[in-house]
Amino acid sequence: MLNLLVISINAILIENFVLVKFLGCCPFLGVSKKSETALGMGLAVVFTMTLASAMTWLFNEFVLKPFDLEYLQTIAFIAIIATLVQIIEMFLQKSIPSLYSALGIYLPLITTNCAVLGVALLNINNGYDFISSVVYGFSAGVGFLVAILLLSAIRERIAYSDIPKPFRGFPIVLIAAAILSISFMGFQGLKLPF
């Protein structure tokens, strides 16, 4: 249990996927204009990351490992994630239309999100077992959710500020994201067992 707690705190705060590992920066900057859409995107990422971790771990363990084909991880995982997202999308559209319309365009966007592929590969690299992989995937998604919500809140505030002209628009967002990132680097000081 403690082990899993450490993994999740590690993924959410100390090694935040966006702010420390710099994975998934595209949706992080792209859909963080409003808190509502940021929340939708974040939840979609949590959802897919958890499922993708589980599926890729199983595939790696039972197909790639027995045949010594671990070098095919990247291409195989991409195929799995893409199919998975497609099927999830169709499933949601059929059975939970309200959630489908809430997540909207963000689900297909995640297909090519490097954070999702990153979590799948890191699971294997870190040598996690199945449960740890799923927990790691889920917490990495939560870490993304926290980061994108923070940035969207900042951007909503920035929208009403008097910003010097050269910094208006994306420059100030990049600066805000950088400062956010620096502050998250502070969590490196947390010394956790394991």
Binding site: V63, F67, L69, L72, I75, A76, A79, I80, T83, Q86, I87, M90, F91, Q93, K94
Partner: peptide, 21 residues
């Protein structure tokens, strides 16, 4: 293995699109 796997995924999404359409 990749060919079989790809075929499997393709079939899976084809089936999904049929049943979940």
């Amino acid at each position: 293995i990749m060919a079989v796997f790809g075929l499997f995924l393709g079939l899976l999404s084809a089936l999904a699109s049929k049943f979940l359409s």
